[in-house]
Design a protein around this nucleic acid. Sequence first.
DNA 1: ATGTGGTAAGTAAGTGCTTACTTTTAATCA
DNA 2: TGATTAAAAGTAAGCACTTACTTACCACAT
Lengths: 241, 241
Amino acid sequence: MRKQEEVINAERAMVGTNVAGRMAGEDRRNQIVHVAMRLFSERGFRGTTTKEIARAAGVSEAIIFRHFATKEELYAAILDTKSCAGNMSQLSEMFAEAVKRGDDRAVFESVALTMLQHHEEDEDFLRLLLYSALEGHELFQMFWQRNVRELADFLRSYVRERQKAGALREMEPRLVGRAFTGMILHQSLINNLFDKSRTLLDITNERAAREFTKILLYGTVSSSAPEAEVKKRNETATRKR
Amino acid sequence: MRKQEEVINAERAMVGTNVAGRMAGEDRRNQIVHVAMRLFSERGFRGTTTKEIARAAGVSEAIIFRHFATKEELYAAILDTKSCAGNMSQLSEMFAEAVKRGDDRAVFESVALTMLQHHEEDEDFLRLLLYSALEGHELFQMFWQRNVRELADFLRSYVRERQKAGALREMEPRLVGRAFTGMILHQSLINNLFDKSRTLLDITNERAAREFTKILLYGTVSSSAPEAEVKKRNETATRKR
DNA sequence: ATGTGGTAAGTAAGTGCTTACTTTTAATCA
DNA sequence: TGATTAAAAGTAAGCACTTACTTACCACAT
């Protein structure tokens, strides 16, 4: 009975998004949130009208206010949808093996690639983040917390751990993480916002991840650590003398 | 006559911003642009109303439309004011000595510090840049061109030059510059936008510039180059063996 | 008296949000 | 099974207010 209902609703939802028939409440609600997400990311909160959202969702404006008391509430509802998909809390699990091995290159490269791909696949994400920051929405705090802060914390603790093990140079771990995040974010901004048209002519995510990791690792690997990269470098240097 | 006029106008401008007396046309125009710049940076183009600008400038809304045909035109007028102050075209001159010496550390550190300070002093700059990018204003193209692209070009050509001299590792110069710009931009974004409240508890611009430069240089210095840092690193490594 | 800097009071076209009303759906019960 | 019914999904039209932009008129220094 319960299951039947859900199946029917799901079917209706699939039809509804195209044909704009009548939908079960929750499906319609979901659809509205998704439409709103797209529009808010394109034009910001202030720049998007409830009328536009309604038209894009294929319903009258009034039903938006049946599902959400205010425009703000609709905006806030985005977070529940978005934070699940974009959540980085599984980070430490995703890269657990690399972390365990202490394979710095693999760790940083995976992190970079994951972020770059995430920013590329979810076109709305960066725009929503920036708009909410600029418009001073409380939403931003949670966006930042759940998607950036966690990454920063992960990187910081990882760097600190590896420093203790003598593998990384003694530098402020926060700044190391911030530098790396900065490289990645900047690359994403250029590809997905600032210079969108020439994305394909540019550097692939894989290459960017590799090169950024190289810069960071060359820049932070402890000279006393038995890392392959350091060994190689030292050998070269010694030979040159 | 010409000079007298300008002095009088300047006086009027200073009074006018406070007392809202009658101003010479050009002064009023300037004042409006400055007020608009602040408001546009705070709330974006769409989020700022001409009424607000008028009230903040201490005049009626109509006189804004006497000076500027449309709101867009007022927005565009910001560029003339802004691009002069924020222009980075003098970059190569500013750091000419360091460039000539081939003092990579000094070059990158100066660039970083200059950018960080610029972003801190000119609070409107980053916000205007991001808003114009998100809102898809043509303005953004010029903003980007004059303030970021030039820096990127400078860094790229500098890196390429130094690579030819054998001082820097063989890496895509574009990516090296992008990585560095990314670190700096990210730091500025955190300090001036994302986490504004705790700016003072954070890292100073000087320190950030130093550390970022360290990461980049360690990460890009050619192992065959007779750089002080490399020497030091190699000595340490050799000793450890 | 004339051009310039200025205003008060508009305009039509939105803005978020509400009201008063109609249709569809799904459970209930004769 | 099929009619009944209450809730939920939907709409058209309009609310008070705001938007960018205009018009018609004024004060005053030269």
